[in-house]
Design a binder for these strands. Structure first.
Lengths: 391, 391
DNA sequence: CTGAAAGCGCTTACAG
DNA sequence: CTGAAAGCGCTTACAG
């Protein structure tokens, strides 16, 4: 029963295999009566077509691949969920490729693992090398990307630089001038573009406000909670302490939150903190952050891919932009006062609406800062002795 | 170049297609010299075999399916990662099936979506109906399960009941007698077994200690942070308030933590809290919990499946048990004193080592409780007015 | 509207 | 050790 063939169905229905094939796929050109007979026969025999034979005959695999550098991080899980849903609804199969390191990338691209195996490919936050791009083109199937862009491939992404700029601008608007950054490790090749572009945004915001950047204000956090914690500890050990911190992703902000609490610094009274992504836990921590709709991005690009797979070579490649939005919660406050901003601000397409309050607040910040810094240094030392005290 | 066939390789190497096929798969019976020539030709032409043709000819798909009811929860992501790695290393493809609701389950099982499509199936925490089991058997391929058990299928799982019992026993050892439980929603069919068995363990522990269970002490939390928060609020609204809470999973414990903080209850000084799973964030929150190695479970069962797929019908089904371990962190304390237990305790296979301190502590608990309860009720009301105050 | 036949690209007994 | 041939289970022009 499990391995009925089309021929058996044909025999039972008293027609030719070609008729069975045609009627079962609703190609048309088959009388209603025989179609009915065939349907019944197939039903009774529990017939289901052999995907392998179908693929061989048509040259289409009915399968697409999604390749991602990480799996366990929230962003990727979310994306995968959205993509899987769209792909499944389109009746396609989804092959998952995890390329966590160079060797796996090689096997995936260079050695043609995907060849003859998929009708389309979806690449997630991968910054491709030239040989990889060439290998992808040689596949001769539609390729779509999330979080990156290559000529000829459809893509969707947020503007990381502008959004990061908006995040930092929010801190500036609150009067902050010494703004630290917890960035992704620049040695991690996989995340290259995202980390790089968010850092660009940070610097752009500082520059636009006439603030000086400094290596003292930056630490690397590996896009993880632990990394964010460690980076914050590093920042607290520097000569010039920040009054606000921009973390390139929420996970690192969570780590920062823990590190700050551990040493007795209050957020946002002593230090303001802003993250990036709007991880579900961000709400839990009342973290101010830049929000993006990851599920929707996955959905959109997956639909794009489904369309391209259905009619290859028809639609031109599109380059979609997903919006981001500044979400002000409880971890950012006006410098010195510890008060939260009075009204929520929004960044549409990365632009922060509302007046720039920096000039208004500058004097407040300056008068408060010196004493604040000294007090913090005392507290830091005092609290390091019993780090488990807080919570 | 992308679609070279075996025939072209044969022509270039000056041999027959059969020889190419044999030598490329290393079947043997081919001279070293021709093998070399064939290899070179294949290399030059960039040949890679057509999976579809291979499948049709051999009847083997080189693919296994993993079917899971959830994707975004930590447990499932972790499992998926481990399984994917093992499957990929074995040279197989992994098809992912998300069966989040009844309709998707139907499509997956009843309508034979998997038929002729995979050489093996891995089921994650699915409590199957009889028709589903029948459909699975009809597939006539090896089936493995995680977190459940069906005769004839290999499986791996922890002992949920014993482990939950150990968790509650830990609270009892600390002198607690009014122990609440945040359980999974009993109306969620997907998680049926896990939630049910953990609840069994809770009741078993209470019973063994001579404590009375009560519906007052239980609330449903949907295995999520939000659900845990809401369930805790419910518990706090009941007449008989718990001095300790067992959450059936860590996510719900996180929600409980938030709810307790919000109303001004200190953990563990006022309320002890224990979770289940050892989610990565559990360490962050210093949550006492029952730890299980999810990655390792995924790895083991995936290896089992790979073996069964390689030699179907040879090895008998195995039923593996994975160990759990009580991890004492900062959210559980001796009743009334708010002090943490002096030495860490362990539960190997669900058994808690160490003396039962219940009798020793009983008097303390009783003398402290009445006043404690009243004070808490006051605080609860006071704090409900401005719930956002904390943190 | 229906059927016979060739073909998709492999693998696998079967000869030699 | 090597090759010619049949077959895996579909689809698709091509006739009728």
């Amino acid at each position: 029963m499990a391995k009925t063939t089309i021929k058996e169905v044909a025999d039972r229905a008293g027609v030719s295999p070609s008729s069975v094939s045609r009627s079962l796929r609703g190609v048309g050109g088959i009388s209603t009566s025989t179609t009915k007979r065939i349907r019944e026969a197939a039903e009774q025999l529990g017939y289901s077509a052999s995907p392998a034979a179908h693929r061989l005959a048509t040259g289409r695999t009915g399968t697409v691949a999604i390749v991602m550098p990480y799996l366990t991080r929230w962003f990727f899980v979310e994306l995968f969920g959205a993509v899987e849903q769209v792909i499944r609804e389109a009746g396609l199969d989804l092959l998952f490729y995890h390329v966590g390191n160079t060797e796996m990338r090689q096997r995936c691209f260079a050695s043609g693992l995907l060849r003859k195996r998929v009708d389309g490919v979806l690449l997630v936050t991968l910054s491709l090398t030239e040989p990889e791009i060439a290998a992808l083109r040689a596949l001769d199937v539609p390729v779509c990307m999330i979080g990156a862009q290559v000529g000829g491939f459809s893509s969707i992404r947020i503007d990381d630089a502008e959004s990061a700029c908006a995040a930092v601008q929010h801190l500036i608007n609150l009067g902050h001038e010494r703004i630290g950054m917890i960035s992704g490790d620049p040695n991690e090749p996989q995340h290259f573009t995202v980390a790089l572009r968010r850092r660009e945004g940070y610097h752009a915001a500082l520059k636009a406000a006439g603030l000086r950047a400094s290596r003292e204000l930056e630490a690397h956090g590996a896009f993880s909670i632990e990394g964010g914690d460690e980076a914050t500890v590093q920042l607290l050990g520097r000569r010039s302490l920040p009054t606000a911190i921009f973390a390139e992703c929420d996970e690192m902000a969570f780590g920062a939150l823990r590190a700050l609490r551990r040493v007795g610094l209050r957020v946002p009274a002593d230090v303001s903190l802003i993250g990036f992504d709007d991880h579900p836990m961000a709400q839990y921590f009342e973290l101010t952050t830049i929000s993006q709709d990851v599920w929707d991005q996955g959905r959109q690009i997956a639909q794009q891919l489904v369309g391209a797979v259905a009619r290859p070579g028809v639609a031109p490649a599109v380059e979609l932009r997903a919006p981001t939005r500044l979400v002000v919660r409880g971890t950012t406050a006006v410098l010195g006062t510890g008060q939260r901003p009075s009204s929520p601000q929004r960044a549409a397409g990365g632009h922060v609406a509302g007046v720039n309050r920096r000039s208004v607040l500058r004097s407040v910040g300056q008068s408060v800062n010196p004493g604040y810094t000294k007090r913090r240094e005392r507290e830091t030392h005092k609290n390091e002795a019993n780090t488990q005290e807080e919570r």
